[in-house]
Nucleic acid binder design. Structure first.
Length: 709
DNA sequence: GTTAGGGACGCCGGT
DNA sequence: CGTCCCTAAC
């Protein structure tokens, strides 16, 4: 084992953590201060000093982050290839809980074949609850299943209870509290009966198990002598309760985070968890990492300027050690398509000047903000990786296929049944519910195939059931391997449905073939299903460019990245574009209206800005296509307006509200060259642009196959 | 009563 | 694209 020269490879702040983080420790780590590096070296340090890797638990925000850290730890320790230290536990709270529940869940009545319900499954089940309780009866409509899910989930993750959660969602609904209580109870009952857990259950059930079985809690607590938690600012009350249960007050618990980057309050993340850590663990040592190794001083001073506007925070000022370069630029464009062209032209320039594609990212608040740019990149055949939005495993045909697989291991899986029943012609919500009830009595897949339930239903429904039964028979005959089961689906009448339903069914079939290939990595259906549900990155994740010949043929990993800001957390690039910085869009209108919402949106902006190492471009369209082919002025984001102009590149102007400091002779039809500003014509031409935007929009819709699903 | 299909509208973020 | 709502058809 090579000796790691910690003194040389870490700064004094980092070294202190790596060497002295025993007992409860809080590391307040500013953006780009080497947070990940510190965690990785700390684990390597422990292992080098004889700590058994299997007694270390590393909790991260995504499984991808966990995998990357474990690989880096392996490299540090000189392991071959990309091997990880054997036995080291790493992953999200949810994936770790899943692993433990597969082992110990039987004690609280869950078979190790339990299903994990994703967001869509959970909503389907809640929809069934609403129907069953007759809450959507004629007259006033009840809250949507998505809204109910949000409330129930918040109640559990915040541990504040249903009433607070309802109130937070919409104070007027509190008078309906008993309805929510009823839905919650029925939803729990359905999940129990289905041997299924939603994401929240993974944590809650494990927590309950630890409470109920002190000896197990003791056992795990002794096993995980070192617990490290990354992105602690985004933990919620439930996660903290779980950690406390596992760690106790004197444990070696190292939490790392930055209160300025807390951006998941919609998942009940509470920035107080990191702020109050010293009170919660009175013996806690507090470390600070305040040297930024990532960004230029220009980018950092903008970041400092932005975050200084938040009241509710630890005051902080990051200092940069990088060489000065250029100031961030604000770029107003006359329309979303001009904005896209600007970004594209600038990217071309960067590529030509030698910046690798993988060092360029375009970030945005919401997935649909990237549409116009995607269109532009498609046209130019410039390949990109996409993070955020619809995932591979969320595609309808993939989820259909997975639902079939779920039934083979968990016959009681109501959400899966409702899904596959609904695929049949003639079977709608109501019949699906009735058939499910009839099947539940049968007790196994084999018996359900034989169940003579068609007599209870009309001809149409009976025919649908018969077709489904054929598919189930094929599955039953296919044995227990994921790849064989997927093959059984893709050779069944399901593909007839696919063909009838989707014009691009060939592509979808290819997706399923890929899925089958990928599934060969798994022997057990349960493992396969758990992985694809908990870790969308497991398959490669990103949406890819399919159309266009492409003058380049870069391998994955050498492409520009398009990402939501949320998904960009923890990542960094040489050049970053933040687009669609418009009023109402960013800060998002709804989010900003929530309690503390504006400050969270500002933190999100801060996260976006601090992703950049060398170049940062902030852009927005000053007009967007409105209804009926018209156009609307689109004022810039509040966050742009409040920036101290001294932080910005000379020439920055905010069209719409503020007059530009310079009005070059830019022709808006030729945007995005040396001078970043793209002038807005206040009168005639805007209308023309508005109309053209609409045609681009229509064009986009026609090409919607590009977006898939 | 139930289902399918068409049209209008909209879209915050994710384990 | 998804979701919702309406209407026609089973």
């Amino acid at each position: 084992m090579p000796h790691i020269d910690f003194e040389k490879e870490l700064n004094a702040e980092q070294l202190a953590v790596v060497k002295n983080a025993d007992g409860p420790c809080l590391v307040l780590a500013g953006a780009g201060s080497g947070k990940t590096r510190t965690i990785v070296y700390r684990v390597a340090y422990l292992v080098e000093h004889g700590v058994d890797p299997s007694s270390i638990l590393l909790l991260t925000f995504t499984n991808k982050a966990a995998n990357e850290m474990m690989t880096r730890i392996g490299e540090l320790l000189g392991l071959a290839g990309d091997a990880r230290p054997v036995g080291l536990w790493g992953g999200t709270f949810h994936s770790v809980a899943n692993r433990l529940l597969r082992i110990y869940g039987r004690q609280i009545g869950y078979g190790q074949n339990f299903t994990i319900l994703d967001e869509e499954d959970a909503k389907a089940l809640i929809k069934a609850c609403i129907k069953e309780l007759n809450l959507d009866a004629a007259g006033r409509r009840f809250l949507s299943p998505a809204g109910v899910k949000e409330i129930l989930s918040y109640a559990r993750n915040s541990t504040k209870g249903l009433e607070k959660a309802v109130e937070r969602h919409d104070a007027r609904l509190v008078s309906d509290l008993s309805k929510f209580t009823d839905i919650a109870a029925l939803y729990e009952k359905k999940k129990r009966a289905a041997n299924a857990m939603d994401f929240d259950d993974l944590l809650i059930r494990l927590y309950e198990l630890l409470k109920q079985e002190p000896r197990l809690a003791e056992l795990l607590s002794q096993q995980f002598r070192y617990i490290l938690v990354d992105e602690y600012q985004d933990t919620n009350a439930l996660q903290v309760a779980f950690i406390k249960e596992l760690a106790g007050p004197k444990h070696n618990l190292l939490v790392v985070g930055d209160d300025a980057q807390s951006i998941y309050s919609f998942r009940a993340a509470d920035v107080r968890n990191i702020l109050d850590f010293p009170q919660q663990f009175p013996d806690a040592k507090v470390f600070r990492l305040q040297t930024n190794y990532r960004s230029t001083p220009e980018i950092l001073s903008l970041a400092n300027d932005i975050i200084a506007k938040n009241v509710n925070q630890f005051p902080k000022e990051l200092t940069s050690v990088s060489k000065g370069l250029e100031k961030p630029a604000v770029v107003p464009a006359v329309s979303a398509s001009k904005e896209a062209q600007f970004v594209f032209n600038k990217i071309e320039q960067l590529l030509e000047s030698g910046v690798p594609a993988r060092e360029i990212a375009v970030l945005f608040r919401a997935t649909h903000h990237s549409q116009m740019l995607e269109f532009e990149l498609m046209k130019a055949a410039l390949p990109y990786d996409y993070r955020g939005g619809l995932k591979f495993f969320d595609r309808a045909h993939v989820k259909d296929t997975l639902a079939f697989l779920r039934l083979t291991v968990n016959f009681s899986d109501e959400a899966a049944w409702l899904r596959v029943l609904g695929l049949q012609e003639g079977i709608g919500d109501v019949s699906a519910g009735k058939i499910f009830e009839a099947l539940r009595a049968a007790g196994s897949l084999a018996k359900s195939i034989l169940a003579p339930i068609e007599q209870q239903f009309g001809n149409r429904v009976a025919r649908g059931w018969k077709d489904l039964r054929d598919i189930l028979e094929a599955l039953h005959a296919a044995g227990g391997k994921p790849a064989d089961l997927i093959k059984a689906v893709t050779t069944s009448t399901y593909i007839d449905y696919l063909e009838a339903e989707y014009p691009n069914y060939r592509e979808r079939l290819e997706d399923l073939d890929q899925l089958a290939v990928f599934s060969r990595n798994y022997e057990k259906v349960e493992d396969f299903l758990a992985d694809v549900t908990l870790d969308d990155g497991v398959f490669g994740g990103a949406r890819e460019l399919k159309a266009g010949g492409g003058r380049r043929a870069p391998s994955r990993g050498d492409r520009i990245v398009l990402s939501t800001i949320h998904q960009a957390k923890g990542l960094e690039w040489d050049a970053v574009f933040i687009i669609h910085l418009n009023d109402q869009s960013f800060p998002n209108r709804k989010a900003a209206a929530e309690q503390g919402g504006l400050e969270e949106e500002r933190r999100l902006f801060y996260v976006a800005v601090t992703r950049a190492r060398k170049w940062l471009f902030l852009s927005y369209p000053a007009a967007m296509g409105g209804r009926e082919g018209g156009f609307d002025y689109a004022p810039p984001s509040l966050f742009l307006e409040e920036i101290d102009v001294a932080c910005l590149k000379d020439g920055a102007c905010l069209a719409g509200r503020r007059t530009g400091s310079r009005s070059g002779g830019d022709d808006w039809s030729d945007p995005g060259f040396d001078d970043e500003s793209v002038e807005v014509d206040q009168t005639g031409e805007l209308k023309e642009v508005g109309e053209r935007m609409k045609s681009v929009n229509d064009d986009w819709k026609k090409k919607s196959f590009l977006r898939d699903v």
